[in-house]
Computed example of a mutant assay.
Amino acid sequence: MKVVVIGGTGLIGSKLVGKLNEHGHEAVAAAPNTGVNTLTGEGLAEVLKGASVVVDVSNSPSWEDEAVLTFFRTSTANLLRAEAEAGVTHHVALSVVGTDRLQESGYFRAKQAQEELIKASGMPYSIVHATQFFEFIKGIADISTDGDTVHMSSAKFQPIYSDDVAAAVGRTAVGAPVNGVVEIAGPEVFQLDELIRKTLADANDPRTVVTDPKAAYSGAQLQETTLLPGPDAHIAETKLSDWMARQQ
């Protein structure tokens, strides 16, 4: 089976291409640095020839509200149009758990727009909602820092290893379209403020984490369960402590 991975040279995409090829599929990485640009349409027709499945794990180069909305609307529309012309039979997109609950955020409004385009396209599809990746925990602290202080909500948080995300997306891609959403999450639930506090302490980072119920997450206010998946989510195996031990 030929599977084209849009964003195939990034963190998830590169792992996904490797896993699909290991299982005997023809996985092709498509990204601007391979000559495929979903914003302009460059290279799409060529790379989609003979493809059965397209997996979109791409992300906007800018998270500014208008730029990210333009990216997801334009790239998704171009991609769906090219897929229909090429006879692709399954569109898979990676999105985020809680997207519909985070609409104060320009980024998540853009992800919601992407999902709505997919659902309205008539293309058989599967949308994978993942919780935040282990690799981006420190980045959450960085964007929430003011001087030497990190303002962080105490909302519950269930992060996942990127390798487990790639595996779940791969299983979805080679399966039948669900024409709906599949949720995936890590095996442990933390309080976001406590996790960031421990992560910084373990790294000997001198910043102080202040618990702030009004602290925004990518521009959106959090309720206790905003970032948690539903009861039917697929739960991955890798624990955060095991992943952190591997990094050391």
Rank of each mutant, 00 (worst) to 15 (best):
A120N: 09
S121Q: 00
S121D: 03
S121F: 10
M123I: 14
M123Q: 14
S126G: 07
S126K: 07
I127F: 01
V128G: 03
V128F: 04
T131F: 00
T131Y: 05
Q132I: 07
Q132T: 05
I137K: 00
I137S: 02
I137M: 00
K138F: 02
D142P: 08
T145F: 04
T145P: 07
T145E: 11
D146H: 09
D148C: 09
D148R: 10
V150C: 01
H151K: 15
M152C: 14
M152A: 15
A155C: 05
K156D: 10
K156Q: 15
K156P: 05
F157C: 10
Q158H: 01
S162K: 09
D163N: 10
A166P: 03
A167H: 08
A167Y: 09
A168S: 13
T172R: 11
A173G: 12
A173W: 07
A173F: 08
V174T: 15
V174M: 09
V174W: 13
G175E: 05
G175M: 08
G175T: 12
G175V: 02
A176S: 14
V178P: 06
V181D: 09
V182M: 01
V182T: 07
V182G: 03
E188S: 00
E188Y: 02
E188R: 05
V189W: 12
V189H: 14
